[in-house]
């Protein structure tokens, strides 16, 4: 069949695309919740910001050391991953406690948190098999940071410029 036929068929299909598709879940409660918040009045956000700053400082120090030194021998590399995990768990629990009872913007954020936990577990497993790989440690740190960002974002939406 010719290119011309394809173009004609494509135009017909484009014209037939629906203008309107409805989401599966109710999005309004999350929006309404966010409308009540402003960047200025969110003490919750400021508090979590301090947490993020403290964790970031600690992590930057840790990762800076990672970048400047040779990767430690196997057992030390595993220890480093453990320290990273413990530090992350503490920060995560404190964050979740501070947002306890506060409605989240999305319903599936827990699922996303779980998926990131799964990714972290996979990286830790890979680290056991390839302990001399600094990229894996950096990936682990980034997955943890992603999780913290996610928890903060769904509970304290930030404003972007349109």
């Amino acid at each position: 069949m010719s290119n011309k036929e394809f173009e004609q068929q494509l135009q017909r299909n484009l014209s037939a695309l629906p203008d309107d598709i409805q989401p599966e879940r109710d999005l309004w409660p999350g929006i309404e919740h966010a409308l009540g918040q402003t960047p200025e009045n969110s003490t919750q956000k400021r508090a979590t910001g301090y947490w993020g700053m403290a964790a970031a400082t600690a992590t930057i120090g840790l990762m800076g050391w990672l970048g400047l030194s040779q990767l430690p021998v196997t057992s030390d590399a595993e220890q480093l991953a453990q320290v990273l995990s413990q530090q992350h768990q503490q920060q995560k629990q404190a964050l979740l406690a501070s947002f306890d009872g506060q409605p989240a913007l999305t319903d599936n954020w827990q699922q996303q948190v779980d998926e990131l936990d799964g990714a972290a577990a996979a990286i830790k497993q890979a680290l056991k098999e390839d302990p001399n790989n600094p990229a894996l440690l950096r990936m682990l740190q980034q997955v943890y940071q992603q999780q913290i960002d996610l928890i903060e974002r769904v509970h304290a939406p930030t404003w972007q410029k349109i």
């Binding site: 989401p23 599966e24 879940r25 999005l27 999350g30 929006i31 966010a34 409308l35 913007l105 999305t106 599936n108 939406p157 404003w159 972007q160 349109i162």
Partner: peptide, 22 residues
């Protein structure tokens, strides 16, 4: 992606509320 589209839709309406003056 349905979930991402839903989140993005919320973000659109959150920002729209503040930017409608434009």
């Amino acid at each position: 992606d349905r979930a991402l589209a839903e989140d993005a839709t919320q973000e659109v309406f959150i920002q729209l509320w503040r930017k409608l003056d434009n």
